[in-house]
Design a protein around this nucleic acid. Structure first.
Length: 511
RNA sequence: CGGGGCGUAGCGCAGUCUGGUAGCGCACAUGGUUCGGGACCAUGGAGUCGGAGGUUCAAAUCCUCUCGCCCCGACCA
């Protein structure tokens, strides 16, 4: 939408011709326009680096929450809530953790009109305070595993912020679990990584690479961090979710001990995992185009909009009656999977505002509503509807004239096909852009200036080489892929140092 | 923390160089004509020009200080 029209601004050149959508190519123009014009959010301005999530954007987050929460419950987790403020001393107990988070903490030093004896930090994440409570709650191996999730806000005073992708305050969920041994905690770490990966593929239609972070990119305080990396349309990577194997680091720092079957005292093995409102940024950067937001049906707050067309009151009465009938039939459709714990009924809006139809088309297109239904006197007479999908796909191309009964009968299938198509298209864009590189000059060429893509390259496994690559190109090692992710594992030589490498890793510039 | 930019109506901006009635588009309100891809006409409401100080007969405009936001880097979900 960089050169696209702005809502309600007639000065900007209209794109009446050439309405073939082009895909997003760069933050910030296009990205921010999509957010503003779809009314997802706006910068708070009065609070540095914070944004206001508007109702339509928040509705997307609620969809994400609900679906993820169901999956957490399915894997045996329970929700709980812990304090926003954490005693500063908690943060300093784990050496790597304090080193990693100290620079970005917001600290409360005064309360009740007086200086506090010990300041509180606003949580940047809750491992420490949850560790504190775990130590009280866990005594026996019979208390394990303890599987807790928290939906919360956190604050990280980042030097640089970007709407949804990195804001000072953000909403997320953080899972925290404690286990009796490392096999179990590692299995949990990988299990939740796959919950995220599956969710991203199935619900967000955002294909991701599942992998392991390098030592320098891992979570501060973890033994090992697993991640899912999404491909954004400007070629950059987005860390869309992480799952950490914390080992006994926090158990030792917070004295979380249990007695095993033999009566011996042991530290618990913990995990933590999280995804945030960043997913909404990933959604935008994965699917949207010059005409605005594109939403997969499973996270769309509104699945279909009916635009009634009429010229006089008689026509209006007739058309509105048909619109209400179509809406009522669609509203009974449940998009949820057959055995889902939640129902996900189709949400239909009849746009009866006093605007011309064309204005409504643009309005809803910008908001990414998957299906538009036009309904006029001609259609009512023929018992048909005119359907148009947000983007051309197997689920619909151009304007289609469909018998009302057929349309209703196939609506669920149409939405689910569209969902699958968005995933397929995103994967094709990613795989079409991804490259395998073996020479350093090719690598530099691929990342000059603002350029970025997914590059599969050999790396010698050292922190020094990793740093040198980042220094030279701004590209980083996004992850070492798990088996089955990316090219088949085969040994080679490092793209930078020429030293031996066991397998290719994923490199890209990152958000 | 470095480098750049910007604070003027709800939103987007012009006006600042060269001081002199506070402007434009959209949005909003009312009336009318319209209505299958962003309608038009008429009328109207809406502002301590980010803040403080200074220069001047006169400051959105010049000077000093200050606050805030955005973008680009270094750090990160």
């Amino acid at each position: 939408m960089s050169k696209g029209p702005k809502e309600g601004n007639k000065d900007v050149e209209k794109d009446k011709e050439g309405r073939i959508a082009t895909r997003a190519e760069s933050y910030p123009d296009w990205y921010q326009d999509v957010i503003r014009e779809a009314e997802l959010a706006e910068p708070a301005k009065v609070v540095k680096g914070c944004m206001v999530i508007k109702p339509y954007g928040y509705a997307i987050w609620e969809k994400i929450q609900r679906e993820l929460d169901g999956r957490f419950k399915d894997t045996g987790h329970q929700n709980a809530y812990f304090p926003l403020l954490i005693p500063q001393s908690f943060i300093t107990r784990e050496a790597e953790h304090v080193e990693g988070f100290a620079p970005e903490l917001a600290v409360v030093t005064h309360a009740g009109g007086e200086a506090l004896e010990e300041p509180y930090v606003v949580r940047p994440t809750s491992e420490t305070i949850i560790g504190h409570f775990f130590s009280k709650w866990i005594g026996s191996h019979r208390d394990l595993p303890l599987l807790i999730n928290q939906w919360a806000n956190v604050m990280r005073w980042e030097k640089r912020t970007r709407m949804f992708l990195r804001t000072t305050e953000f909403l997320w969920q953080e899972g925290h679990t404690a286990h009796a041994n490392h096999e179990e905690s590692l299995a949990e770490t990988i299990r939740m990584l796959n919950v995220y990966g599956d969710f991203s593929d199935q619900v967000l239609a955002m294909p991701v690479v599942r992998g392991i972070k390098t030592e320098s990119e891992k979570f501060a305080g973890a033994l090992q961090s697993f991640c899912i990396e999404g491909y954004m349309q400007d070629g950059k990577a987005l860390q869309a979710g992480t799952s950490h194997d914390l080992g006994q680091n926090f158990g030792k720092a917070f004295d979380v001990k249990f007695q095993n079957e033999r009566g011996e005292s042991e530290y618990v093995w913990q995990t933590s995992w999280g995804v945030s409102t960043r997913l909404i940024g990933g959604l935008i950067m994965s699917h949207s185009d010059d005409q605005g937001l594109v939403l997969p049906p499973l996270v769309a707050p509104i699945h279909a909009v009916i635009v009634p067309i009429y010229r006089n009151d008689a026509e209006k009465a007739q058309v509105m009656e048909a619109a209400a009938r179509v809406k009522a039939q669609l509203a009974d459709i449940d998009l949820g999977p057959p055995r889902s714990r939640y129902r996900d009924f189709v949400e239909v809006v009849i746009d009866d505002r006093d605007l011309r139809p064309g204005a409504k088309y643009y309005h809803w297109e910008r908001r990414g509503v998957p299906v538009r239904i036009e309904l006029g006197p001609r259609d009512v007479a023929k018992s048909q509807v005119v359907a148009k999908m947000r983007i051309d796909s197997e689920a619909g191309r151009g304007k289609e004239f469909v018998a009302e009964s057929d349309f209703v009968a196939t609506f669920r299938d149409r939405l689910l096909r569209y969902q699958g198509e968005l995933h397929r298209l995103a994967r094709e864009r990613r795989d079409g852009a991804a490259i395998t590189l073996d020479s350093w000059s090719d690598f530099e060429a691929a990342f000059t200036g603002e350029k970025s893509t997914f590059a599969w390259c050999h790396w010698d496994g050292t922190r020094e080489t990793e740093a040198a690559i980042k220094e030279a190109t701004q590209a980083t090692i996004r992850c070492v892929p798990l088996d089955g992710q990316g090219p088949a594992a085969e040994p080679g030589t490092c793209i930078k140092s020429g030293k031996p490498s066991p397998r290719r890793v994923l490199m890209a510039k990152a958000y």
